[in-house]
Amino acid sequence: MTIEQKQQEIIDEFAIYDDWMEKYEYIIELGKELPLIDPGKKTDDRLIEGCQSRVWLDATIENDKLQLTADSDAIITKGIIGLLIRVLDNEKPEDVVKSDLHFISDIGLQEHLSPTRANGLLSMVKKIKLLALSAIPK
């Protein structure tokens, strides 16, 4: 499945819900489904700066594809990073860097977050793209 197809799948899933309370509940459920990060990788150097809550992100390369794992101490934030991982995990670093993550605005996520959470979301996207950029062979 391409990045675009994964985004469309998320857009379709969110279209089912009528109001933002239901959408928040769905995001929380997605966070609960996020695969656990290795506790040894919950280190300060993996913390994403700019997030209100603590968010750890780990990226490795396997078979020329970015492998992402993450965790957060806030359930809504865990769901948000889970959405990003769902779209960008197991993709070529070049594709991650070039990706236009329009699903964020298409589902109305950014406008329904507090300013600090919206900044955190931008920090998560930036960190994932920087990790992907650093993984591209020179």
Rank of each mutant, 00 (worst) to 15 (best):
A74L: 07
Q5F: 03
C51N: 03
I48E: 09
E33Q: 14
I136R: 12
I10G: 04
K98T: 02
W56N: 02
D38F: 09
F103Y: 10
E91T: 07
E13C: 07
I81V: 14
R117Q: 09
I128F: 06
L131E: 12
Y24T: 14
L133K: 14
D44I: 09
E33K: 13
K126P: 05
A135K: 15
L88I: 07
L68G: 06
L30P: 00
G31H: 03
K138G: 15
T69R: 07
E91M: 10
V55I: 04
A59D: 06
L101T: 03
N119H: 15
S53F: 01
K6L: 05
E94Y: 07
L101G: 04
L109W: 06
D73A: 03
D95T: 06
R86P: 00
L68W: 05
M21P: 00
E62S: 03
K129F: 02
A70V: 01
D100T: 06
L109K: 05
L88R: 07
G82S: 15
F103E: 05
K92N: 05
K32N: 13
T60M: 03
Y26E: 12
I104Y: 10
L83E: 11
N90W: 04
I75L: 15
I10R: 03
Q7I: 09
E13M: 11
G82A: 14
I28W: 06
Q67G: 01
T43Q: 15
E94R: 10
L57P: 01
L109H: 07
E33L: 14
K129V: 02
Y24I: 14
V125G: 07
E94Q: 08
Q5P: 00
Y26P: 04
W56P: 00
L84C: 14
K126T: 12
K41M: 08
E4N: 09
V97S: 04
S114L: 08
I28C: 04
V125I: 15
L88A: 13
K65P: 00
P35R: 10
D45V: 11
D44G: 08
T2V: 04
E9R: 04
